[in-house]
Design a protein around this nucleic acid. Structure first.
Lengths: 337, 337
DNA sequence: TCTATTCACTTAAACGTTTGCGTTGGTTTT
DNA sequence: AAAACCAACGCAAACGTTTAAGTGAATAGA
């Protein structure tokens, strides 16, 4: 590999001069600069990121930490979308991204923080993990700039999907379409789940609608089978709901299956409402009525804020940024009026 | 950050001794070793990957290059699955993965190869790109160990999905179920597409079935709308096919939509066959009959072979590895006999 | 008793950069 | 004509490691 030294000797200048020339310092003559740059190109010089980072204490490399319960990793539609946008945005600023390995039982494994330190990441984005995992907490509390997605810590910038707006929008839309008997199969307990559930109840109250206890069920996120079973229960109720909310789009598909197997129709007999806006849902009939999270906004905001935190720590505040999504009308909600 | 030097001065030994102790060299006394390791732990020492890589010329970091036509990046179900398995496997051996940025029009961008050299990746995995892109070719021809997915170059190890087995399996299954009028909407031209198409024709010939020209149509991969339109054309034929093959599962959903909108039923009037086995398809009714590519096998094989190439170049052959998938029976194929 | 050998460590160079400070020689100021 | 300045470059240290070669003392072999 050709290094500064090679260029230096070929140009009869010192290594320092070459470095300065390539970094466009002002104390190198225009002519020398041009000559050095030309030979650098001719020799196919590529700087060495490792060497550079040793001197500058900056790697221009960001760590990515994420993993959900189902261990679906990259296949998690929502997160993959957020990450994709994040990646594009940071690349614009010259950053790369590297995964912080999350295989908890590999032989030589180290903690998340140790891994991040080993690679000297300039910053880290965290999403979709167990946020109360001690290792995650340790990473968050460290001096490494961190941005989290969808979970609030003290002293950490967070990018949040607007769950309040999401549920409000859906509730309003469903009620406007004449529904009064609305059930909610919500996800496993978490701050996001609580926010959604509280908003659900509150917003229905606004409309003067009270929800019977048996209409509120729990089933894990992204679990079609769990949603399927809970839906069967709901359908067996004497006062069957006319509309069912699901924790996410996957679950909604599980629910729709239950409805069909009962010999009922979506949306004629039971209306179905999802949450997320997974891409594939646009391609499948009936199109799911759901709230689409702005994954692009989430990823972009996360990127911008993380880079600000890294490059302009003095003037950057820790903050929480809420990103609104939007209603996606499909064919799974019946107009009752 | 605490370095070897800090440990050395605290233990009253030289830096070299510390390095050797931590790397378990044989020429350090057992007692000293223990003392050094203890203080390293106490001080919270974390090695510096950059410094290490400067000396060893190994980064234990692998580059990932991929991007499909639709620019869907990480959201590409198939590739995300392969990558996930790849990631898990390489992590076992202590490697990290970093994306080679693929935004072709960002300001300070460099070629794929330059990026890979800049980060000094030990190896690179390539998938889902335009394989005849000069930049990709340049990367492949370089001295960096490379493994490609689903595309054969000379002198490059490739992991291939078994398209021949896939199409054969599907054709056999469909024919066994009594179908004789089988159409194929295939993907855009590529070696994979050609393999599938040739196998399709050949295998039907084996069964004594000839396919009319108008049964063979082309539509881009993962394009539901294109598949939708081509399906409409097929359905309007006087000799309507009883079964339609699609380039992939997404396209199949587009096709199913066309069938339904024509007032026909899947599979009663028209049977539908996909390719890929995307995860979400298992959760949606009717379940798609398709050929599931073994993404886990592909990713794992890619990882193992790339690491072999890196760590044991003398004893590792460039080879092509074919990974079989398997038939996934769903509800979209009608038994005609 | 003298010479090899082994053990346990140290020395020092090297990897490829960046950067504060110094050193030139030449050009302006007073 | 002396003092002051500037433009253009070199010196050398430093970042945190690894490793070949060297050193001194203890042990073993003859």
């Amino acid at each position: 590999m050709v290094s500064l030294k090679d260029i230096a000797s070929k140009c009869n200048v010192s290594v320092a001069t070459v470095s300065k020339a390539l970094n466009d310092h002002s104390d190198i003559g225009a002519e020398t600069k041009a000559r050095i740059r030309r030979t650098a190109r001719e020799l196919g010089y590529v700087p060495n990121a490792a060497a550079k980072s040793m001197k500058t204490n900056r790697t221009h490399n960001l760590g990515v930490l994420f993993m959900d319960d189902a261990n679906s990793g990259l296949q998690h539609d929502f997160f993959a979308s957020v990450l994709e946008s994040f990646k594009k945005e940071v690349e614009k600023e010259g950053y790369d991204i590297t995964f912080i390995s999350n295989d908890r039982n590999s032989p030589g494994r180290t903690s998340y923080l140790t891994h991040a330190r080993y690679r000297r990441f300039d910053g880290v984005i965290i999403a979709n993990v167990h946020f109360d995992d001690p290792e995650v907490v340790e990473l968050v509390k460290s001096d490494i700039p961190v941005v989290t997605i969808d979970h609030i810590y003290n002293d950490t910038t967070t990018i949040l999907s607007d769950n309040v707006d999401g549920i409000k929008t859906l509730v309003d839309f469903v009620v406007e379409n004449g529904h009064k008997d609305i059930a909610y199969i919500h996800g496993a307990d978490s701050s996001v789940t609580r926010t959604r559930l509280v908003t659900f109840n509150k917003q229905l109250e606004e409309h003067g609608i009270t929800v019977p206890d048996e209409y509120i069920q729990e089933s894990p996120y992204r679990d079609t089978h769990g949603a399927y079973e809970k839906t069967l229960e709901l359908l067996d109720l004497p006062n069957r709901p006319t509309c069912i909310f699901y924790p996410d789009d996957y679950a909604a598909y599980g629910g729709m299956r239950a409805v069909m197997e009962k010999g009922l129709k979506v949306p004629d007999d039971v209306s179905v409402v999802g949450f997320d806006g997974i891409k594939v849902a646009r391609h499948i009939r009936p199109r799911l009525t759901t709230y689409r999270q702005d994954t692009d906004g989430l990823g972009t905001q996360a990127a911008k804020n993380l880079i600000d935190l890294i490059e302009r720590p003095k003037t950057t505040l820790i903050k929480q940024i809420v990103v609104k999504g939007k209603l996606l009308e499909g064919d799974t909600l019946k107009k009752l009026n």
